[in-house]
Design a protein around this nucleic acid. Structure first.
Length: 647
RNA sequence: GCCGGCUUAGCUCAGAUGGUAGAGCGGCUGAUUUGUAAUCAGUAGGUCGGGGGUUCGAGCCCUCCAGCCGGCACCA
């Protein structure tokens, strides 16, 4: 007998080979009817699967959180059946569950069009209404291959070949339609329910490999109920409203145009935000002992050959030939320039660690399909720095960097930060011994900082391993921003050295680091994170003085002058418009503070303060308003300094 | 770069089956002096992304190119 333990702690003995369905039936008929799968020691399995050993058991219904993945996976199978029924000759490949939904990749000569989606959805609804049971059969490799070979499913044959010897090969069927699948599935197609929708069609390479054929992927979403689906679709709409490209236009921050793909035209307001970020980072770096430099935008090809960039990224660099027939490349990175600055003048071990920072604009010919608003551009500014250290100093520097990194993100409200550790890639420079050393050093640093991290194998830079900082924004999306890279290769390649205590020329270690990463990208992320409602210190226009009647014009100018004298970025709106109109317009432009002045305010030297996102009005004296706003507009780093200093 | 889609006025979008362009908002002008998310009236804006082709005739059809959008691949 085997012993199954239930969630309430009670245990009962069953015959080995008992199925989840039988267990559920033994508890209650109603439960058996609702059951869709079973969890054994937390592992979700088919309800019909024989249970062979002792386990903690939970009978899962559609309402359990674990069932969501089943609903989505089943929906993927249902979609695949629908597609093959509607479009004979289409091959199925893979169809996994993803965050919030599922997809299935198909091989078909004809492209799917958006018009096909409702047709497929309707067919899916039919299949779901049929409520065909999902059945699972374990088959041997040969039989499986024959089965799919007969159906002309060549992609499935490749998948079978990729299954390790010894693993069982399962075929799931719903009526006569079947698929190679490791499962688990619910009991029948009807359990998918009505909370699904197909969202988009996309191309996707077979096995994620750009040398392999391109398949057609259909993305869908599925939920336990129609209400959940509706809520999710609503959430997508809300996310669309924060799209930085849309807000960038509405807030008059920047634009793009055809003549400069992947290059930002920053408008005055966007640039105010951009420079506020640089100013902030500059102050923080100064406090941390960095020197700020500026290196050339173009340098001779020879230098890029020497650094190794030419070989690895030469076809992605902007290259120019001058009348004297020299070839120059726009810098895709700042590091070689910083090494030149390091090399200028003999350096002693006493100079280390030497922290060289630059807000350098780099140029990379990114693949056209990668461009995406501010988030992926071809010309961008990094808050880049290179720390030249001895090997002994790596750990200490990295621990400091980590603290700085987290403190920066905190100032923008990013509290949830994950770290990825990327080790040596296939294409790299330097010996394995040097890589061993670099990875070990970086790992020591992560551990010394007490960080947990996830391994990202093979994703390091060509010259060294890296840590990547991933921020979770206000609506739960992840953004990779900062990076720390330990480089034991480039300084040597570029001929950098310092004089060690023993008088020997020694090659320094270079730590590359960026915190915002790309300023353009970080600006885009902030716009989306804040949904355009930037905190006062970042808002391009911090306050607008809006008049109700023209009699208040003179006073409004006085208010504006007072705001500007207090260092606030402010504008006055004296137009001959109703106050409703002005409130609406400035609210849409995401101006954080509106100071409304009418006859009353002019007479009493007050202002009516209205905050973005609130209908409340607060009438205060002009002096009070200025004091309040000036205090609020202090950047977070200076705010802390002001607090610790006695008043 | 690859697959698919899209590109009409500053913005958002209409323009069956080919018969040389429309609306709302915005702009401008005027009236209105207004109390917290759109005051009214008048008026001016377009070589329909670019090139080539089919046709008596192309915003609509074909073709090449560019840009953008959604993915995939890439991301020093």
């Amino acid at each position: 007998m085997i012993s199954l333990t239930f969630p309430d702690g009670s245990a009962r003995d069953f015959k080995p080979g008992v199925t989840g369905r039988e267990v559920a039936e033994s508890i209650a008929k109603s439960l058996a009817k609702k059951a869709v799968a079973v969890a054994l020691d937390g592992q979700v399995r088919d309800l019909a699967e024989p249970i062979k050993a002792d386990a903690k058991i939970r009978i899962l219904t559609r309402e359990d959180p674990e069932a969501l993945a089943l609903i989505r996976h089943d929906a993927a199978h249902v979609m695949a059946e629908a597609v093959q029924e509607l479009y004979p000759g289409t091959q199925v490949t893979i169809g996994p569950v993803i965050e919030n939904g599922f997809y299935y990749d198909f091989a078909r000569d004809e492209p799917f069009t958006p018009d096909d989606l409702p047709v497929i959805e309707a067919k899916m609804a039919e299949i779901i209404a049929r409520d065909s049971p999902f059945t699972c059969e374990v088959v041997d490799r040969k039989a499986a291959k024959k089965l799919f070979a007969d159906k002309g499913e060549t992609f499935k044959l490749e998948l079978i070949d990729a299954i390790p010897a010894g693993d069982e090969i399962r075929i799931y069927s719903q009526r006569e339609w079947l698929d190679l699948c490791r499962g688990p599935h619910m009991t029948s197609t009807g359990k998918v329910g009505k909370g699904f929708k197909l969202l988009k069609i996309a191309g996707a390479y077979w096995r994620g490999d750009s040398t392999k054929p391109m398949l057609q992927r259909i993305y869908g979403t599925a939920w336990a109920s129609e209400e959940d689906l509706k809520a999710y679709l609503h959430q997508l709409e809300e996310a669309e409203k924060r799209d930085h490209r849309r807000l960038g236009r509405e807030m008059d921050l920047f634009h793009f145009q055809e003549e400069a793909p992947g290059a930002v035209f920053w408008h005055a307001k966007g640039w105010a935000l951009f420079t506020a970020l640089i100013g902030y980072m500059r102050r923080r770096q100064q406090a941390w002992g960095y020197v700020e430099v500026n290196s050339p935008d173009m340098m001779d090809k020879a230098l890029w050959v020497q650094s190794g960039h030419w070989e690895k990224f030469g076809d992605l660099m902007y290259v120019t030939e001058t009348p004297d027939e020299r070839i120059y490349a726009c810098k895709p990175m700042n590091c070689p320039g910083h090494v030149q600055i390091f090399k200028h003048g003999l350096k002693s071990y006493r100079d280390l660690p030497l922290r060289i920072a630059e807000f350098g604009k780099v140029h990379r010919y990114e693949p056209s399909g990668a461009l995406h608003g501010l988030l992926r551009v071809r010309h961008f500014t990094q808050d880049d720095a290179h720390i030249f250290t001895t090997e002994d100093q790596i750990t200490e520097e990295c621990v400091k960097l980590n603290e700085q990194m987290l403190s920066i993100y905190r100032d923008f409200g990013f509290e949830d930060v994950r770290i990825k550790f990327s080790d040596r890639p296939a294409k790299r420079v330097g010996s394995d011994e040097v890589w061993d050393k670099a990875e070990a050093a970086l790992k020591r640093a992560v551990e010394a900082a007490g960080l947990s991290y996830e391994l990202n194998p093979g994703e390091g830079a060509f010259y060294g391993p890296k840590l990547e900082y991933v921020l979770r924004d206000a609506i739960g999306r992840d953004w990779q921003c900062g990076t720390i890279q330990v480089d034991l290769n480039l300084p040597g390649r570029l001929g950098a050295f310092f004089i060690a205590p023993d008088g020997e020329k020694t090659v320094p270690v270079m730590i590359h680091r960026a915190m915002f990463g790309s300023l353009e990208r970080f600006t885009g992320i902030l716009i989306e994170h804040y949904a355009g409602h930037l905190p006062l210190w970042l808002a391009p226009v911090q306050a607008v003085v809006a008049t109700i009647v023209s009699d208040a014009d003179v006073y409004a100018e006085e208010v504006l002058a007072a705001l500007q004298a207090a260092g606030l970025r402010a504008e006055a709106d004296l137009r001959n418009e109703k106050i409703n109109y002005k409130v609406r317009e400035h609210s849409l432009a995401k101006v954080p503070v509106l100071l409304v002045v009418g006859k009353r305010e002019a007479e009493e030297k007050t202002v009516s303060v209205r905050r973005l996102g609130s209908q409340a009005q607060q009438v205060v004296t002009l002096d009070e308003a200025i004091r309040m706003l000036a205090a609020e507009a202090v950047p977070p780093d200076l705010r802390q300094a002001a607090k610790t200093k006695p008043a």
